[in-house]
Amino acid sequence: MNTIVKMNIWQFLLVYILLIIVLIIMRRRRINQIKLLFIASIRMTVQLVLAGLVLTYIFENPHPLFTVGYIIAMIGFAIYTVLSRNKGLNRQFKIVVGVSLAVTGLSVIIFFILAVVGVNIFNAQYTIPISGMIMGNAMTGVSLGLKTFNENIRTGRNKIEVLVNLGVTPDKILTPFVNTALETAILPTLNSMLGMGIISLPGMMTGQILSGTLPMTAILYQISIIIAISAVTCMAVFCSLYFGYKTLYNKKNQMHI
């Protein structure tokens, strides 16, 4: 059970053959995303190799500062990605999104590592990969939530204007938009729970099993991380939108959308 097959570098390179198949299909079907395929594959490879090197170094020279630094970088990158995918937010809205992601992300990470797993928060081997999963999902959720919110606001501009002119409060006008976006953002996570264990063995569990962990231990980790991911997604999207929509109008109840 506990034998881990180490990949030989040449065997590893074989997997890129699969990418060539993707390339051929895209060429044939004239899908104009070949550049993206190259950039994405190269970036993915380089970024992961770098992450591997950095993690190796951190595991060999453990220091609390490394763990903290890694998490800060992760949160920073998550915030940057969300904001660059959602241009056109006002300054205050951006701050709200940043703070929401950082605070909800950190709280769930700390709770998960300290209380659920029960190891030292500075233990890089646990904290870094788990933080990555939590922040990654929070980032996707907030991005999707903001995108839905902004699109609905844009298409609902007329409705918003009409309601303002009838003397309806901005709160009442905008909360339905917040609710719809929140629902859209958390649905994928909830739906993915449905097929788990039947259609797919999720990534974390697969990884643990491949590296020799007993399946029953692996599923405990998987169940808890999925719940943590649902929670962080819901919390981060909720905070971003709930405090964010209040930046869309001023004290005179005039909308800036």
Binding site: N158, E161, V162, L163, N165, L166, N253
Partner: peptide, 17 residues
């Protein structure tokens, strides 16, 4: 108060909803 004012002075937009 702007909300109370808009309830008293209703504006009917050209593009209705």
């Amino acid at each position: 108060d702007t909300i109370e004012h808009r309830k008293q002075v209703i504006l009917v937009n050209q593009s209705v909803y």
